[in-house]
Write a protein that binds this DNA or RNA. Structure first.
Lengths: 170, 170
DNA sequence: ACAATACGTCAGTGTTGTTGACATTCCAAG
DNA sequence: CTTGGAATGTCAACAACACTGACGTATTGT
């Protein structure tokens, strides 16, 4: 096993980590997340939207026809909080809200052409930075990046994360 | 070069990344950040503090005697926003605010014993999850994790991130 | 018929961010 | 020594986004 700088393993094969290493990891998450959201935030503020709108658009694009309840548990917010965002997106003609066929209580959400376009714009801005970071770090790093992030998720949230891979090739 | 699943390189040696791969990376960041903040958030809400208090405590602990302006640019918020948080922390006896010796305009911030204790509690909760994730993913993954996150930071923020390593062994 | 589910909405509250304005203190350059 | 500007603190107003609690409606399942 090749060890990176500053990491070591004891005889039990357990990774030994100093407080300093963990603290750097915490700070890396903090600073990286800022960069991660910086570009979409700029675009969103032009239309006086916020991060919540971006998240909603992202996951509706991801799962077209999804129900409100499903989106709710993916985002992990209350229905009141989501509703505020959804209402503006529907009013602005970015999101479609259609009554369910089998179950008429449900509302199926999807993006309009405008919504799809705007989501693409946001997605591109964020993807560009992600791609640049991936290329700079290299393919092996990307594997590690994903592994650590997945190990950091709450199990309940990880289910949602994995559900998007069902029947999709990565 | 060993390629992870779904990644490939073209003849120019440039990493080829599909929209789907990038989208998964974006979602990984989103879901992981939730897990990342979940444990401290619980502890903070017991004292009716928020994430902003945690961040302030973290970086004051990191750089004892730092000035308000320095903390401001690290956190990337306005002085008004930071001031509100600092005021409560000072009132609650967690943070010390001392007038500068050379430059008396500056206020040097540091943690009291209580503040240090509370910061430790928060830090431990977050570190525990980070350590678990690191161990689950393995040492090579940790290297990659850090590499990608660093490549994702804005250059201006990265300076702050790196400043904490000056003269420190990792 | 009745309970539960899915959704929407109203009202109130809290944290965290923003701008803008203004006062104070202090250093440093003219 | 005066003055400009930097560093700090504070006030007010506002917005985004989260929360709780409550209520109403339509629909579904038992």
């Amino acid at each position: 096993m090749i060890l990176g700088s500053g990491q070591s393993e004891n005889s039990s094969g357990l990774l030994f980590l100093t407080d300093e290493q963990l603290r750097k990891g915490i700070e890396a998450m903090f600073f990286a997340y800022r960069g991660f959201t910086a570009d979409p935030d700029r675009i969103l503020s032009e239309r006086s939207y916020g991060r919540a709108h971006h998240r909603a658009l992202h996951f509706i694009k991801r799962s077209p026809g999804t129900t409100v309840n499903n989106l709710l548990s993916t985002l992990g917010v209350t229905k009141q909080s989501l509703n505020r965002v959804l209402r503006t997106l529907i009013q602005d003609g970015l999101v479609l809200n259609e009554v369910g066929v089998q179950d008429k209580r449900q509302r199926h959400l999807s993006l309009t052409v405008d919504g799809s376009e705007f989501e693409q714009k946001l997605s591109n801005a964020q993807s560009d930075r992600m791609r640049a970071a991936y290329r700079q770090a290299g393919p092996d790093a990307v594997q590690g990046f994903r592994s650590v992030l997945e190990a950091m998720m709450d199990p309940e949230l990880k289910k949602h994360y994995e559900s998007f891979s069902k029947g999709q090739r990565l």
